[in-house]
Design a protein around this nucleic acid. Structure first.
Length: 969
RNA sequence: GCCGAAGUGGUGUAAUGGCAGCCACGAUUGACUCAAAAUCAAUUGCCCUGACGGGCGUGUGGGUUCGACUCCCACCUUCGGCACCA
């Protein structure tokens, strides 16, 4: 018999029967997972006699396979939830699926699988994978947003928002593909073209549903009673972008159309030398005289082909077009030209600005570009001749060229804090030219999606054009199952059976065919976890009264401004609509004050970073097929080729060399794309060729795929792309498969590695070699514990005391680190304890059985949240009572952790020059005397006297540190 | 471009303003082995030195401080977000 033992072999070495069993993670993990499930160890039930802890981690999108990023987010969160449980809390740690979304539709269009089928299959698969983590998820509380029992309530929330005036209809731009007659997601648009067809995409106005989120802008700026990371709060504050200023009405010279503008600088009104409208501004059509129609039209169309990001990039040259119309500046009656430019956005402010080139950088650049007047109206006191000639000036100064306000001091600040602004606002208000106003960068939340796989917006349009919500008893407005997903048009709008309905009077009516943004589904899911099966309410008030609010929320920082802001808005709206009244009553009945508990959804927020793909070669390909457009190829054959070959500039020349084509003509007719795969969604590849151009390759069903390294018939899914370290995602094909690692090394090892190998807030690239450290740690722990207690009852008292000291120092460190989400240092401390324990055991007789048992049991309890299966197994073997996860976390004893001796650091000007062993807690005088006696100090002083001597006392409790004496010479 | 964050040995990382590099990975040497793997022991920031020892060192340049990876200013690079990916 020939047995190959790999590093991760789970095979016990049977030839060596004298050895005890090796660590076999697979066996113990499945055993304990089954036992825990059978015993309902992680069922979280309301128990008013115990303090509760609602630990929440962001729910995954069911994209297919669980990837290592999910483990990175969830297993440390699980470890901390387990830690809180051992600290005496009744912990709820639920899980679910954010199951509506675009990838399901991609799969449907590209592979002909129904989105529901694809999603359900993925959820089933991911549930199994999630169970393999050994996390304390309470699966009885699972919720999936695509189920009618869930989205019924998403629709109900929409209705309540609509009825209270929080939801309304208005126009907004969408990415419109004229070819597909479809609205595209930003992600589907590459370089202004549809990624699937390579055809141009335009910006089109559509009437859509919005939530009045700006109503909460001010409240969203404050974070009362919550512990959220400062960077997240700052990003949200900047996203909301509150600015104080004024709205001022300019009028057109011809036709007298009012143009409302918002400005933060009303003190510069006299410096407005032109106006600019956004290309989409509704007045554009009305004010442009006939002779300018053509040029304006051309400009507006050009702007419609660009994204907002492209339009607002400051480094790009400003573009614009004169409308031929003029406006009258209300403050001085001046006639100023009206321009259209894409740097003014219809989504910000009023979509129109007064341009003050002397005091605004963007206006300055624009005026320079088109030779428009630049007139300074704020003069800095130290102004030179070149003032406002080379750059816009936005600082303090006195007003000039401003009529009655000449000489007024503007201190350069924004809002009422600036006396000049304050005075001008008061004056224009009195004159009726404008009024004080606050503007937010935050826009109302556009929730309409022209998609199939989402929760239908439960509204009905009557024959007379009025709109009404679907009656409560008719909810949910259910998605029809029988749709054909072609990627052309909107399947819901084309589905007669869905569209045609009746209104509340039984008259024929049409359904709204927009579905809701998936962020809507994820804005209330933690309420659904309270009672996921409840059919007569969104959530159960009894459960809510006990569990709410969420005590800790963990997830990626990439959600800083969108999901986390939507979630806060949703909770505040629910509070104001009275949805927590019953919950509050029940709280009070149990003596719990509901005060301020429904203002914010998540009390404590912590963000992890992202696990990046491991560095490796990606695939360069040569695809043969037929051109569909200049940039899109339908491929019948895809070959993985060498990088060098792919980077050869001319595929036509190459075809001659390789003799693959009889003639250039034939090659051009059939078509070849060569280059690196930079993106993949289902069977669509984006390839960067040797010239750096992006080409789209759609691999036809049944196409021949050749990957030299992979034997057998190859599939599109085996094509990898984009080498180098980068964000892991299914569409990038660089996913590290956790199942593979669980099979190789065990779930506990994967958990330990993810907690140990990274700064959790930062993340980083997966390293399949680095996991060896935690793997060894667990094997060592296994070996130490299964070796059993020493034969001697008691050992050397000093050695046992030293071990006890190390154990208590570790208790302190691990508790603090788990509390603070510092998982890597918690594991490091446990590894150190293992090393110390093993070193102490090396000399026979040093450690007795009692001390050994005490140390080992404590170590296992400390490890339990991190490696739940291993800890449970070994706990049983040392005679601990089932389950280790129901034990109390070890308590830290400062006296037991205290050191007798410590090292005094002697420094010269802050640099260490010597060290000496002294008693812990040494006095200042003794420390200085001891320091001065050292060699290092004598050499540093060189016979002289120090200028100063600074003593820094050490700490012998908690986070320890050594005493220091710094000699300043 | 705007907003936010991060830059520390070959690598992942650690360090309430107080010994920079804990804990690991990798590497080198040795033990065990016919050999390899595993395991064990030792070394491992860089430079000079036979050694003792010395110099330099936390992205770059300034500053504050008895003392700076840590605080402040400027710059460079990388990552996340920018409203229809989730």
């Amino acid at each position: 018999m020939f047995v190959i033992l790999t590093r991760y072999s789970s095979t016990t070495c049977e030839t060596d029967m004298t050895h005890r069993a090796k660590y076999n993670p697979q066996a113990i993990e499945s055993k304990w997972q089954a036992r825990w499930e059978q015993d309902e160890l992680y069922r979280s039930k309301v128990d008013w006699s115990k303090p509760k802890y609602y630990a929440l981690t962001m729910l995954p999108y069911p994209s297919g396979d669980l990837h290592i990023g999910h483990w990175f987010a969830m297993t440390p969160s699980d470890a901390r939830a387990r830690y809180m449980r051992m600290q005496g809390f009744n912990v709820m740690f639920p899980m679910g699926f954010d199951a509506f979304g675009l990838p399901a539709e991609n799969a449907a269009v590209q592979r002909g699988i129904h989105p529901a089928k694809w999603t359900h299959a993925n959820m089933e698969r991911m549930r199994k994978q999630l169970r393999s983590m050994g996390a304390m998820f309470d699966w009885e509380r699972e919720a999936a947003s695509c189920e009618p029992e869930y989205y019924k309530w998403t629709q109900w929330f929409f209705k309540k928002f609509y009825e209270s005036g929080l939801a309304y209809r208005s126009e907004a731009l969408v990415n419109w593909s004229p070819t597909l007659q479809t609205v595209l997601a930003n992600e589907q648009v590459i370089d202004g073209k549809d990624e699937r067809t390579g055809q141009p995409v335009i910006q089109k106005m559509l009437t859509q549903w919005f939530f009045r989120m700006t109503k909460y802008a001010d409240e969203l700026l404050s974070y009362v009673n919550v512990d959220w990371p400062e960077p997240i709060r700052m990003m949200q504050a900047n996203w909301i972008g509150r600015s104080e200023g004024a709205r001022v009405i300019f009028r057109t010279e011809v036709g007298d159309h009012p143009i409302e503008i918002f400005t933060t600088r009303p003190d510069t009104l006299w410096g407005a030398t032109f106006m600019v409208l956004a290309p989409e501004h509704p007045l554009v059509e009305q004010i442009v005289p006939a002779e300018h129609k053509e040029s304006v039209q051309a400009y507006v169309e050009k702007a419609a082909r660009q994204t907002e990001l492209e339009r607002t990039a400051d480094d790009r040259d400003k573009t614009g077009v004169f409308t031929g119309a003029y406006a009258i500046n209300p403050v001085n009656g001046e006639r100023i030209p009206i321009w259209i430019a894409d740097y003014v956005l219809i989504t910000y402010g009023t979509g129109a600005i007064m341009a003050v080139p002397a005091h605004d950088e963007r206006d300055f650049a624009f005026a320079r570009q088109y030779g428009l007047e630049i007139r300074p109206v704020i003069r800095p006191d130290d102004a030179g001749d070149d003032f406002c000639v080379n750059a816009a000036y936005s600082g303090a100064g006195h007003m000039i060229n401003s009529g009655r306000f000449d000489g007024t001091f503007a201190n350069g600040e924004k809002g009422r804090k600036n006396g000049a602004i304050s005075a001008v606002i008061d004056w224009i208000s009195g004159q009726g030219y404008g009024r004080e106003a606050i503007n937010y960068r935050l826009r109302d939340w556009l929730i309409s999606r022209q998609r199939y796989w989402g929760a239908p917006i439960p509204m009905v349009y009557r024959a007379d054009g009025t709109v009404e919500p679907v009656a409560d008893q008719d909810l949910p407005a259910q998605l029809p199952a029988d749709v054909v997903m072609t990627g052309v048009g909107n399947p819901l709008a084309n589905h007669e059976g869905f569209v045609n309905t009746t209104d509340s009077n039984g008259q024929p009516a049409r359904r709204e065919t927009d579905t809701m943004d998936t962020f809507m589904c994820s804005s209330w899911y933690w309420f659904r976890y309270l009672s996921p099966r409840k059919s007569d309410a969104a959530f159960d008030a009894e459960e809510a009264a006990y569990w709410l609010p969420v005590d800790v929320y963990t997830g990626g920082a990439e959600h800083a401004t969108m999901h986390l802001l939507y979630a806060r808005f949703f909770t505040k709206s629910m509070r104001d609509l009275g949805m927590f009244e019953e919950t509050a009553d029940i709280m009070q009945a149990h003596g719990r004050s509901p005060q301020a508990l429904f203002d914010e959804p998540f009390m404590l927020l912590r963000n992890q970073g992202q696990i990046l793909g491991e560095e490796r070669e990606g695939h360069y390909i040569r695809a043969h097929g037929q051109w569909d457009s200049n940039t899109k190829l339908f491929a019948d054959q895809v070959n993985v080729i060498d990088k060098e070959e792919a980077l050869m500039v001319d595929p036509v020349a190459l075809s001659h060399i390789t003799g693959e084509f009889a003639s250039v003509a034939e090659e051009q007719m059939s078509g070849t794309v060569m280059g690196e795969i930079v993106k993949r969604t289902e069977n669509i590849l984006t390839v960067r060729d040797s010239k750096g151009e992006l080409k789209t390759v759609e691999v036809r069903t049944g196409a021949e795929i050749n990957i030299p390294d992979v034997p057998g018939t190859n599939t599109v899914n085996q094509l990898k792309h984009h080498l180098e370290i980068q964000r892991m995602s299914k569409s990038k094909g660089n996913v590290v498969n956790p199942d593979e690692w669980v099979n190789k090394a065990g779930a506990d090892t994967v958990r330990a590695y993810l907690m140990f190998g990274f700064d959790w807030t930062k993340g980083g690239p997966w390293d399949s070699q680095g996991i060896e450290g935690p793997a060894r740690w667990l094997r060592d722990v296994w070996d130490i514990v299964t070796a059993g207690a020493p034969a001697t009852a008691s050992g050397n008292p000093d050695a046992e005391r030293a071990l006890e000291r190390r154990v208590h120092q570790t208790i302190y460190k691990v508790s603090l680190d788990m509390e603070n989400f510092s998982f890597n240092t918690a594991v490091a401390a446990l590894m150190t304890l293992k090393n110390d324990l093993r070193a102490a055991l090396r000399e026979p007789g040093k450690i007795g059985a009692a001390a050994w048992t005490q140390a080992v049991k404590t170590m296992l309890l400390l490890m339990a949240p991190i490696t739940p299966h291993l800890a449970e197994e070994l706990w049983e073997r040392v005679g601990g009572a089932y389950s280790i996860h129901q034990q109390a976390f070890p308590a830290y004893d400062a006296a037991k952790a205290a050191d007798d001796m410590t090292t005094l650091i002697v420094m010269k000007n802050g640099k260490p020059v010597d060290r000496v062993d002294v008693a812990a807690g040494i006095s200042e005088a003794d420390a200085i005397a001891a320091a001065m006696a050292t060699h290092g100090a004598q050499r540093a002083l060189n016979g002289g006297t120090p200028k100063r001597v600074i003593f820094v006392p050490g700490r012998n409790e908690g986070q320890k540190s050594e005493p220091k004496v710094n000699i300043v010479v």
